[in-house]
Design a protein around this nucleic acid. Structure first.
Lengths: 213, 213
DNA sequence: CTCAATTTAGACCGATCGTCTATTTAATTA
DNA sequence: TAATTAAATAGACGATCGGTCTAAATTGAG
């Protein structure tokens, strides 16, 4: 059922020369945490489930993280970084026009959601939705991630202006903001419908808006 | 702290002529349930919290509802109906042009979110987001609500076409679908930012798209 | 060979969910 | 009007789970 699991762990301080067989326990917890939280969010996910899937005993968790909240903060940061890398990959591909890069990102997202049968969404969107049930300090972290993503998106839109793909009259910051507002809705809906169609529908509408037609 | 609460409930079968002081217990539970679930969603809300806020003892809950899942189904239906009424109110107001009716709906939503300090979002969006943590049967209920809302929205767009406000070339069903995909994202973001700005930004973008400019 | 550092083991408490029985009050029936 | 039935509340209970915390095990350092 689960690929990460059940390697016999030795108790006590590990030998210095080790780290052979299995990835660092901490990294494993983060990876598994991301996969579970992108699926079910923060509140309805229990530590136990993450530990079970990671094949890590409970005691270890509280060795590596102060508590669930601290773990959550680290997941938000890790997820933000993961996407920043994705953007660098797509948004700076000179083989494509700026608008094609945006389309490539959309295709990549579709592929990603399909791979997990539309069960996993966006961690930031998930957590934003449950904001009122979350530690208040999460709010600014989530907002910062959106700010970062919107900046990067605005950048590619400006390049599209310079390349003459879209009108110079468009306010790129506002358009990037619009994109991320709606895109999170599209991810949500794709999860509900278990289909890529909402992602396509929103992306297509957004591009029409850019092209002013 | 809480307006609904703490009216001394009489034990036992109620007199036939009654229903004077407080609303029916069942109705109270539904009302309170809606307010809590629009805020925190399904998974992270416990029955006890609803009972406490409603001032209703636990024994009553299981008298009126089979279990939490059955209660959730009833809340989805009640919320769907509540919004259907809202649409009837705004979308059939002949004093406004069709597009103005859409704008009136947006204003109403802004007012509604502001009233609760942007803590409450859309029940259907909330539950859609946590779909993977929900009883599988909820999926079709949520989809049906969106289908209904999109139909009503498509209707007002067709009226806008007939009134010459927007191009006859627009596919109203698709545009209504686009609206609801993005609008749920806007509600999510308004909750995160505790601001009406995402609602305005999305609505304004959507209207530009309709007007083709 | 101690002692500190690092990690695992799992006990523990409180909260949540759903059930169940007892109790209270009103309506119905005879 | 007494007995019975219907309708609702009271709240104890067990099972389970989530989060925390302490004890134990293992290794490295002096």
């Amino acid at each position: 059922m689960n690929q990460t699991a059940d390697i016999k762990r030795k108790r006590g301080r590990p030998p210095k020369t080790e780290n052979a067989d299995f990835r660092d326990t901490r990294e494993t917890l983060i990876t598994v945490g991301l996969s579970v939280l992108t699926e079910k969010g923060y509140s309805s996910t229990g530590i136990d489930e993450i530990l079970r899937k990671a094949g890590v005993p409970k005691g270890s968790f509280y060795h590596y993280f102060d508590n669930k909240e601290a773990f959550g903060r680290i997941l938000i940061e890790a997820y933000g970084r993961y996407f920043a890398r994705k953007f660098d990959r797509w948004f700076e591909d000179r083989a494509l026009t700026p608008l094609q890069r945006l389309e490539a990102f959309v295709e990549d997202a579709k592929t990603g959601m399909a791979r997990f049968e539309y069960r996993r969404g966006c961690l930031i969107g998930n957590l934003g939705q449950e904001m009122t049930a979350l530690p208040e300090g999460f709010r600014v972290l989530l907002q910062d991630v959106f700010t970062d993503w919107e900046c990067r998106t605005a950048g590619v839109l400006r390049e599209a202006q310079q390349a003459g793909e879209i009108s110079k009259d468009l306010k790129c910051d506002q358009m990037a903001h619009f994109f991320w507002i709606g895109w999170e809705g599209a991810v949500l809906r794709a999860k509900l419908d278990q289909s890529p169609e909402p992602l396509d529908r929103f992306a297509q509408g957004f591009l029409s808006l850019l092209r002013g037609s």
